[in-house]
Protein backbone atom coordinates (compact mmCIF):
# COMPACT_ATOMS: atom_id res chain seq x y z
CA UNK A 1 0.00 0.00 0.00
CA UNK A 2 1.47 3.29 -0.96
CA UNK A 3 0.66 6.51 0.75
CA UNK A 4 0.69 9.99 -0.77
CA UNK A 5 2.05 12.49 1.71
CA UNK A 6 1.81 16.25 1.31
CA UNK A 7 5.06 18.11 1.91
CA UNK A 8 4.46 21.83 1.28
CA UNK A 9 3.75 24.28 -1.57
CA UNK A 10 6.32 24.46 -4.36
CA UNK A 11 6.45 28.21 -3.86
CA UNK A 12 7.77 27.81 -0.36
CA UNK A 13 10.91 26.00 -1.52
CA UNK A 14 13.81 28.32 -2.17
CA UNK A 15 16.51 26.86 -4.43
CA UNK A 16 18.44 24.31 -2.43
CA UNK A 17 15.80 24.10 0.28
CA UNK A 18 14.95 20.86 1.93
CA UNK A 19 12.17 19.65 4.12
CA UNK A 20 12.65 16.74 6.49
CA UNK A 21 9.52 14.76 7.39
CA UNK A 22 8.80 11.65 9.31
CA UNK A 23 6.44 9.21 7.66
CA UNK A 24 5.53 5.94 9.39
CA UNK A 25 8.60 6.34 11.55
CA UNK A 26 10.93 6.90 8.59
CA UNK A 27 12.85 10.14 8.20
CA UNK A 28 12.66 11.39 4.61
CA UNK A 29 14.25 14.43 3.01
CA UNK A 30 12.60 16.35 0.19
CA UNK A 31 15.09 18.53 -1.64
CA UNK A 32 14.64 21.19 -4.27
CA UNK A 33 17.70 21.73 -6.43
CA UNK A 34 17.77 23.81 -9.58
CA UNK A 35 14.01 23.60 -9.97
CA UNK A 36 13.81 19.82 -9.53
CA UNK A 37 12.51 17.91 -6.53
CA UNK A 38 14.10 14.82 -5.06
CA UNK A 39 13.10 12.67 -2.09
CA UNK A 40 15.47 10.32 -0.31
CA UNK A 41 15.77 8.46 2.95
CA UNK A 42 17.31 10.74 5.57
CA UNK A 43 19.00 7.80 7.26
CA UNK A 44 22.51 7.38 5.91
CA UNK A 45 23.47 3.80 5.17
CA UNK A 46 26.83 4.29 6.80
CA UNK A 47 25.83 5.01 10.37
CA UNK A 48 22.35 6.50 10.24
CA UNK A 49 23.47 10.13 9.87
CA UNK A 50 21.00 12.80 8.64
CA UNK A 51 22.17 12.57 5.06
CA UNK A 52 19.46 14.83 3.61
CA UNK A 53 20.69 17.73 5.70
CA UNK A 54 24.07 17.49 3.95
CA UNK A 55 25.54 19.52 1.14
CA UNK A 56 24.05 19.16 -2.34
CA UNK A 57 26.63 19.77 -5.06
CA UNK A 58 27.83 18.95 -8.53
CA UNK A 59 29.99 15.86 -8.51
CA UNK A 60 33.72 16.54 -8.63
CA UNK A 61 35.16 14.66 -11.58
CA UNK A 62 38.60 14.11 -13.06
CA UNK A 63 39.15 12.75 -16.50
CA UNK A 64 42.21 10.90 -17.77
CA UNK A 65 43.38 12.77 -20.84
CA UNK A 66 46.42 10.75 -21.85
CA UNK A 67 49.69 9.15 -20.79
CA UNK A 68 51.51 11.24 -18.22
CA UNK A 69 48.93 14.02 -18.26
CA UNK A 70 47.34 15.39 -15.11
CA UNK A 71 43.65 14.67 -14.69
CA UNK A 72 41.29 17.21 -16.13
CA UNK A 73 39.23 18.21 -13.09
CA UNK A 74 35.78 19.71 -13.26
CA UNK A 75 32.41 19.87 -11.58
CA UNK A 76 29.93 17.74 -13.46
CA UNK A 77 26.72 19.71 -13.79
CA UNK A 78 24.92 16.61 -15.02
CA UNK A 79 25.51 14.69 -11.83
CA UNK A 80 24.10 16.23 -8.70
CA UNK A 81 25.03 14.50 -5.47
CA UNK A 82 24.45 14.82 -1.75
CA UNK A 83 27.07 14.24 0.93
CA UNK A 84 26.19 13.06 4.41
CA UNK A 85 27.49 15.62 6.92
CA UNK A 86 28.65 13.01 9.38
CA UNK A 87 31.43 11.29 7.37
CA UNK A 88 30.97 12.19 3.73
CA UNK A 89 29.23 9.22 2.15
CA UNK A 90 27.96 10.69 -1.09
CA UNK A 91 24.93 9.61 -3.09
CA UNK A 92 23.48 10.49 -6.46
CA UNK A 93 20.59 12.80 -5.69
CA UNK A 94 18.34 11.23 -8.25
CA UNK A 95 19.04 7.52 -7.92
CA UNK A 96 20.33 7.33 -4.35
CA UNK A 97 23.30 5.26 -5.55
CA UNK A 98 26.52 5.67 -3.58
CA UNK A 99 29.21 7.17 -5.81
CA UNK A 100 31.71 4.47 -4.88
CA UNK A 101 29.57 1.41 -5.52
CA UNK A 102 26.15 0.53 -6.80
CA UNK A 103 25.91 -2.08 -4.06
CA UNK A 104 24.95 0.76 -1.72
CA UNK A 105 21.64 2.31 -2.57
CA UNK A 106 19.91 4.94 -0.46
CA UNK A 107 16.12 4.53 -0.78
CA UNK A 108 14.48 7.19 -2.93
CA UNK A 109 10.84 8.20 -3.19
CA UNK A 110 8.68 9.38 -6.00
CA UNK A 111 7.80 13.08 -5.93
CA UNK A 112 4.56 14.46 -7.41
CA UNK A 113 3.54 18.08 -7.89
CA UNK A 114 -0.17 18.69 -7.80
CA UNK A 115 -1.92 22.04 -7.75
CA UNK A 116 1.23 23.80 -6.66
CA UNK A 117 1.94 21.41 -3.78
CA UNK A 118 4.75 18.86 -3.41
CA UNK A 119 3.82 15.29 -2.46
CA UNK A 120 5.90 12.18 -1.95
CA UNK A 121 4.73 8.62 -2.43
CA UNK A 122 5.78 6.36 0.40
CA UNK A 123 5.32 2.57 0.23
Amino acid sequence: MSEKVEVKPVAEFEDGDREILTVNGKSIGVIQYDGNFYALSNTCLHDCGPVCTGRVHEKMDGEYTGTGKPLDWSHNEDEIVISCPWHGWTYDLETGEHLATDDIQLPTYEVEIEDGDVYIIVE
Binding site: H46, K59, M60, D61, G62, E63, Y64, L71, H87, G88, W89, T90, H98, L99, A100, T101, I104
Partner: peptide, 15 residues
Protein backbone atom coordinates in the same frame (compact mmCIF):
# COMPACT_ATOMS: atom_id res chain seq x y z
CA UNK B 1 38.08 5.73 3.23
CA UNK B 2 36.98 5.59 -0.39
CA UNK B 3 33.36 5.31 0.68
CA UNK B 4 33.82 8.53 2.64
CA UNK B 5 35.73 10.39 -0.10
CA UNK B 6 34.66 8.85 -3.41
CA UNK B 7 35.38 11.88 -5.57
CA UNK B 8 39.09 12.22 -4.82
CA UNK B 9 40.08 9.28 -7.02
CA UNK B 10 37.87 9.66 -10.04
CA UNK B 11 39.54 7.00 -12.19
CA UNK B 12 38.25 4.22 -9.97
CA UNK B 13 35.34 2.29 -11.42
CA UNK B 14 35.00 0.00 -8.43
CA UNK B 15 36.12 -0.32 -4.84
Amino acid sequence: EYLKRPEENPLLEKL
